[in-house]
Design a protein around this nucleic acid. Structure first.
Length: 103
DNA sequence: AAACTGACTAATA
DNA sequence: CTATTAGCCAGTT
């Protein structure tokens, strides 16, 4: 069954990210058939309700880092969730996309 | 309706 | 490595 709204497509892709892996915004956008709309992916994440089943924490930016948010603190939550899944961060706070990148 | 904002990326200097 | 520019577009003011 095909998703109709862009948001639904984005969420569908994010849900497919395996445990212990991460994907970039641009990658999610592409997989959701919305090339060049990486920003919209970020916006869609921001619009997610609390307690969602969408593993939004597995979406990071192209540099393999957790994106900065308007409200500090949420970044730490995301890092903690990823660490719990086995994703390791480098000393500079970067994730090795070669190792943990999805596909 | 127009301007502003933002969980982005890629290219260029 | 950092800084700047341009492209992208939904939601908010």
């Amino acid at each position: 069954m095909a998703e109709s709204s862009p948001y639904q497509r984005i969420y569908a892709v994010v849900r497919r990210i395996p445990h212990g892996k991460v994907a970039t915004y641009g990658q999610v956008a592409r997989l959701a058939r919305l090339p060049g709309r990486a920003r919209q992916v970020g916006y869609a994440m921001h619009a997610l309700p609390a307690g969602t089943r969408v593993p939004w924490q597995r979406v990071v930016n192209a540099q393999g880092k957790v994106s900065r948010r308007r409200v500090p603190g949420a970044e730490l939550t995301q890092r903690m969730l990823l660490l719990r899944e086995g994703v390791r961060f480098g000393g500079n706070g970067r994730i090795s996309l070669a190792r943990f990148g999805w596909k």
